[in-house]
Design a protein around this nucleic acid. Structure first.
Length: 433
RNA sequence: UGCUCAGUAGUUCAGUGGUAGAAUAAUUGACUGUUAAUCAAGAGGUCGCAGGUUCGAACCCUGCCUGAGCAGCCA
């Protein structure tokens, strides 16, 4: 008799198998019991018929508690009455771990209660589906960049200074010196690109901002590719190919999970068609002004979420907004060749109101210009000597971008809030569990 | 950090000045195909915390704590 996973049940129809499972719910009558089972690969139902298994096993089945773990043995049947398409007719139960008064019931719960029990909430169907899609997007990320000649260069998490100097950093100690948790690996990836051509990082990022919205996490995961001998236009092509590849990966490998989430695959299929629309910041400002919905919006301001949502809704596709004002962007972006007021950059705004998922730019290469910008930004020049070295020794045109993994997951899964896109979210005032 | 809203049974909520309620979960029993099964029974409470007003406060007032939504900031 084979020991299998639920997801492989279709390959074992009419065979007797053994599966290690947890009980998610049960229903029973005097003669028949339905056990809702999960094993981490899928969810399906076990059927226990009293007249077949006898008094003792039937009684044991009826007394199983929610989230109790056990082995079931039985025969797999194809059955149209099951949501999964298959079920197991149980002939034996071997208890493994007891469970009493499991807090998360099949009824509704509030967000706070669920977040306090995040370690258990992860077992439920919706969370299972989101985590599987997250895993697929991580897998597809590695595949995409490896296929396209990138190597992964890990940026440090502990840094001695603020890479961008703009947002709040988590402060810590590095023995007797000050240190900060990384809010971006980008500058290090630029060093990587000058060493190995095309590189990417994929790691945690920390922002000590008092942000409290559905699109913010304090700790999140970012993918930051950086490419040497590359201008912004080629970078945009890589960005849209990468995003489309993520969507395609989920469509190819997560149909079951999309169904659990009620996410319509037809909507996602639209996002695999390239290229994505591109508009300049100037055009975006004009569109917003013409809409008459944003008051006295003036050139030079950064977009808030209502503006981003309006732009993305207009195209119903991910849309690149290019070349923002220099004043609202970080110091390392390449200045526009003919205009003093904008830089060569682009944000990718996700449709359906999910906001910015990528920020990217071509990088400034002139060490003199960079030194000035570092001073202007009020940063300590000495901390950036190593960064300026990259411009002193064989600098080349290069571009890169950063994709926020959880924002992309929230968009692709169609979830309301970013907090369910990461196993243990760190939110303002929440660091338990 | 600002604005708004909320905190009552394990959970989700009703109760807005006069004996603390419902549904659901858990428990016990009935039921041969259930999909949040159904039916019946008993049980379940520091009404967020502290102070005040009142003959009397879950309810009114003040302060504090906790959370949610939106905004700013960002990916």
């Amino acid at each position: 008799m084979d020991t299998i996973n639920i997801i492989d049940a279709k390959n074992h129809v009419d065979q007797e198998v053994k599966i290690g499972v947890w009980l998610t719910n049960k229903r029973s009558s005097g003669k028949i019991a339905f056990l809702q089972l999960r094993d981490g690969t899928a969810y399906f139902q076990g059927v226990v018929v009293k007249s077949v298994v006898g008094e003792e096993l039937f009684k044991m089945a009826k007394e199983l508690r929610q989230e109790e773990s056990f082995y079931v043995t039985g025969t797999i049947h194809e059955d149209a009455r099951s949501h999964f398409g298959y079920e197991i007719e149980i002939s034996g139960i071997e208890k493994v771990g007891a469970s009493e008064d499991y807090p998360i019931t099949p009824k509704e719960h509030g967000v706070d209660f669920l977040m306090d029990h995040r370690h258990l909430w992860l077992r439920s169907k919706k969370q299972f589906a989101i985590m599987k899609i997250r895993n697929e997007m991580i897998r597809a990320t590695y595949e995409f960049f490896n296929r396209n000649g990138f190597i992964k260069i890990d940026a440090p998490i502990l840094t001695g200074s603020a890479p961008e100097g703009t947002t709040e950093l988590f402060h810590t100690k590095y023995f007797d010196r000050d240190a900060y948790l990384s809010q971006s690996g980008q500058l290090y990836e630029e060093a990587g690109a000058m060493a190995y051509g095309k590189v990417f990082s994929f790691g945690p990022t920390f922002r000590a901002e008092k942000s409290k919205t559905r699109r913010h996490l304090i700790e999140f995961w970012m993918i930051e590719p950086e490419m040497a001998f590359m201008h912004q236009e080629q970078s945009l092509e890589i960005q849209e190919r990468y995003v489309a590849f993520l969507v395609q990966g989920v469509l190819d490998n997560c149909q079951y999970e999309l169904k659990l989430l009620n996410r319509d695959p037809k909507v996602l299929e639209k996002y695999t068609k390239l290229p994505y629309p591109r508009i300049s910041y100037d055009e975006a400002i004009k569109m917003l002004q013409d809409s008459g919905k944003f008051g006295d919006l003036e050139w030079g301001v950064d977009f808030g979420s209502p503006e981003e949502t309006y732009l993305a809704e207009h195209f119903q596709l991910p849309v690149f907004v290019m070349n923002y004002p220099k004043a609202i962007k970080p110091f390392y972006m390449k200045p526009h060749p003919t205009r003093d007021d904008v830089v060569i950059c682009a944000d990718l705004l996700a449709p359906e109101g999910y906001g910015e998922i990528i920020g990217g730019s071509e990088r400034a290469v002139d060490p003199q210009y960079l030194t000035e910008q570092i001073k202007k930004a009020g940063l300590n020049e000495a901390d950036y000597e190593w960064y300026l070295d990259l411009r002193r020794y064989g600098s080349v045109p290069h571009a890169g971008f950063g994709l926020g993994l959880e924002r992309a997951i929230t968009w692709i899964t169609g979830e309301e809030h970013i907090r369910e896109s990461i196993p243990f979210p760190r939110l303002l005032n929440r660091i338990y569990p």
